[in-house]
Amino acid sequence: MKYTKYIFAVYMLLGSVNVIAQYQNGGPIYTPKFTQVNVLKFVGTDYTTQQKNDIKTEWMNYYNNRITFEAEATYKYNCHVWAWAGFNNYWMNAPEQAKYWNDGSYTEVTTPFDGAKVRYVSDDHSSVATSTSDYFSSKWGPGPRFKHHKNDSPYTVTSLKYYARVPYISGLANIKYPGSVTAYTLDNARPGTITWEKSAGSPFNISPTTGSTTNVTQTGSSGTGTLTAKINGVVVATKTITASKITISGVMNGPDVVYKGQTGVSYWVPFETDLTYNWEYGYFTLASSNGFSSCSFNVPQSFGIGSEEVLRCVVKFNGATVGAFYKHVEIY
């Protein structure tokens, strides 16, 4: 220790190490739920390389090299901003970090996991849990960032709380049938076994019932049900899903009578989004592309008086037939 400080003394005489710690308002930054978090931007003179190394050595000695050095000492960022926001260029003073759990961006969990945020209730500190049990990663004030056992830091650990991003189910709130198969995913899921359940009487089925994603298929009835995601048996997210049947109405529009050799005769049916339209015909030939709610045809020359064409437009949703429009067209 004394040797280290002697070296430092010599260094000090060689050059300026005048730490001038100055901050100005930085950011702002935002929580995942878009709450503004006030942070500071360091605009002063930081530690010298020698100081950074000495501070690192002193702390490592202090904990008998049981702590692992991750990043050098700097006034640029502190524990809170690194743990909660992942930044290394802002400084966040308490109690700004509380916004992350107070606005519902993070939820408390009973067991830490790799990446969980650690709140020191009895101290002014935050860290991030690692994949090693009881080992956290944290920046020590303006000091270095270390990976350390929870008991190997200068902070009080009598009351720790662990936080995870609030999971949510992504996917459509409204599904249609027939033919609807919609994927739902549990986002922000922390490690664990994910299981899916649906409420009794739900107008849909789910498969598979484990894993990060499940597929929802309609049962053929309209109504509302609840999709529930659990991690290790604990409900973490729900989503209300409404199923409704797709119907078509109206008639096929276009002339009832056409003439031999006539070209570009148009027919159309009512349009709805997400539906596909397939035109079926016998004598006519296509004058436009098939697949849309309107279509044009050419009438051949070789018909006898009084021939008839039956036009059909089949409407599908996700490959399943919803219905069809018909029209009998006389050819003269």
Binding site: Y23, N78, N93, H125, P142
Partner: peptide, 20 residues
């Protein structure tokens, strides 16, 4: 003056997370 924690804990708290 020769206490080994001078510079780490004193005169200023160099591990403290609040600049104020």
């Amino acid at each position: 003056l020769e206490h080994p924690e001078n510079g780490m804990f004193r005169p200023w708290c160099t591990y403290c997370s609040n600049s104020e």
